[in-house]
Measured scan of single mutants.
Amino acid sequence: KGCNCRRSGCLKNYCECYEAQIMCSSICKCIGCKNY
């Protein structure tokens, strides 16, 4: 399942991608994603 966080840059544990240690991709559609 994808993540669509808006404010944290996908760097907080409530973002599913970050919590699962998945990098930003087409699945993880965080706005302004900084989780490289």
Rank of each mutant, 00 (worst) to 15 (best):
K1L: 07
K1D: 00
G2T: 03
G2W: 01
C3A: 05
C3R: 02
C3M: 07
C3N: 02
N4T: 08
N4F: 12
C5A: 04
C5N: 03
C5H: 13
R6D: 14
R6T: 15
R7C: 04
R7A: 15
R7I: 05
S8H: 03
S8L: 09
G9R: 04
C10I: 00
L11I: 04
L11Q: 13
K12Q: 10
K12L: 05
K12A: 11
K12M: 05
N13Q: 10
N13S: 08
N13E: 10
N13L: 06
Y14H: 15
Y14K: 11
Y14N: 15
C15I: 00
C15F: 01
C15G: 05
C15L: 01
C15P: 06
E16V: 05
E16Q: 11
E16F: 03
E16T: 04
E16R: 05
C17F: 15
C17R: 03
C17D: 14
C17W: 02
C17K: 05
Y18S: 10
Y18K: 14
Y18T: 10
Y18M: 13
E19V: 07
E19L: 06
E19M: 08
A20W: 06
Q21C: 07
Q21R: 13
I22T: 13
I22N: 15
I22F: 09
I22G: 15
I22Q: 15
M23A: 08
M23S: 10
M23R: 10
M23L: 03
M23P: 08
M23K: 10
M23C: 06
C24H: 15
C24G: 12
S25Y: 02
S26E: 15
S26A: 12
S26V: 08
S26R: 07
I27W: 01
C28G: 07
C28Y: 00
C28A: 06
C28S: 08
K29G: 15
K29P: 09
K29Q: 14
C30I: 00
C30V: 04
C30L: 00
C30E: 07
I31C: 11
I31R: 13
G32A: 07
C33F: 08
C33M: 08
C33K: 09
K34I: 02
N35C: 04
N35Y: 01
N35F: 01
Y36S: 11
Y36L: 11
Y36G: 14
